[in-house]
Simulated scan of single mutants.
Amino acid sequence: MTPASARPSLQTAPPGSQPLRVVSYNIRKAVGTDRRRDPDRVLRVLAEVGADIALLQEADLRLPPRRPVLDPVAIKAATGMAPVHFAKGVAMGWHGNALLLAPHIKLQALALHDLPGLEPRGCLVAEVQRGDQHLRVVGVHLGLLRGSRRQQLTALLRHLGQDPLPTLIAGDFNERSLEVGLGRLSRQFTILSGGPTYHSRWPVFALDRMAVSEGIQPLNIIAHRSADADTASDHLPLVGDFTLSAAQTRSAGGAP
């Protein structure tokens, strides 16, 4: 793979292929730029996007029992998606990272990992299936310190190992530099930016990114703007459209 970090131009999906839409969104516990906690506003943004897969950050309240800020019934009603439950208390996410799937996307395997660093961080690694296509999606929210982010990326790559399954990593990378801060990731993944996502009212920094391995072709990636998106969180949602290579098979018992 040739590493690259770019904002891809809009391309046409190959004939007969069905684009896959993924959104990464730091919802800031549903607290908007007006300092109001408004879960319904976040759900309206997710409905605007119309994703197949949503990877959320800061999806739970900070203090135990870390209750989710979005109600699963309301998520279903507003977006048609359903959250993946991790069977770990009442929280919707793992270290705040949550995964929502449209009905036609089936969860095949799930792994939850702690990540090193000064702050408690983690990632979720899910293997999902759409029809006869399999891929791995990874949700992350990296730390505020560059030293911690480097440790976390090293640990993440170790968790992923050498599995050839097409993989998409998405989240709040909290990093402005592709070369210094994300260099170890770019050796194995193509890092994508849809432009500045922070601060949502006056976007300046591209803190939210997606990274893809071979087998996943980006068509378009943008920071989604709307009246609700500009106020629902301090981050804009990052929306990517992708096509997958020829059907990827998975041996029985495979896991991320």
Score class of each variant (00 low, 15 high):
H104C: 13
V45Y: 03
V84C: 10
V49Q: 10
A78K: 04
V23Q: 00
T33K: 08
G122S: 02
V45R: 03
L20Y: 10
A13N: 05
L110A: 04
V23S: 03
V42W: 03
L61R: 02
D38Y: 06
E58W: 03
Q129I: 12
A13C: 12
T33P: 09
P103N: 13
G32D: 03
A30E: 15
G93K: 03
V45L: 04
S9T: 13
A77T: 08
G50I: 03
R35L: 12
L115Y: 12
A126Q: 10
L46I: 00
D52I: 00
R130Q: 11
G80E: 07
L107R: 00
N97S: 06
D40V: 01
V69M: 07
D114T: 05
R41S: 03
R44I: 05
A78H: 03
V49C: 08
L100G: 12
H85F: 06
P83M: 02
S9K: 11
G96K: 04
K76Y: 04
H113C: 12
L115N: 14
H113I: 06
A111N: 12
A54G: 09
V31A: 00
D52P: 01
A51V: 10
Y25L: 05
D52A: 01
V90Y: 04
C123Y: 05
Y25R: 03
H113T: 10
V69F: 08
L124I: 11
E127D: 13
G96V: 04
L10E: 13
W94Y: 15
Q108W: 04
P8L: 06
I105Y: 05
P15G: 05
H104T: 11
L56F: 15
S17Q: 15
P72G: 11
L55D: 00
A98R: 04
A6T: 13
L61H: 01
